[in-house]
Amino acid sequence: MLHIINKSPYDRPAFDSALKTGEGAILLIEDGVYAAARGGATEAKISAAQGKFKFYALTQDLEARGIADRVIDGVTTVDYGGFVDLVAEYKTCQSWL
């Protein structure tokens, strides 16, 4: 399933919480995109979870926050259209509000 995360991993447990849920895809949007920035504490978590999850981050939110040039390898960037495609691809989606 598709997990949509809009919370900074440094503020709230949504990102960690979703990771524990098992497998699927994680889409980072809004403040959630900070999890996709290189050099942070989430980098190791994202590489460790590569077998279980596919990671995506919303381009517009990365750009807005000035981190589009430092996206972790293994995170695919998508625009709003790509967001729609992901929702269509997975039968269920859960927003970790």
Binding site: M1, K20, G22, E23, T92, W96
Partner: peptide
């Protein structure tokens, strides 16, 4: 467990969170 909950979640038609 969290993983079991994940499986239950995945089996749903609609997941709502507020």
């Amino acid at each position: 467990s969290r993983a079991e909950l994940g499986k239950l979640m995945e089996a749903q038609d609609v997941v709502l969170s507020f």
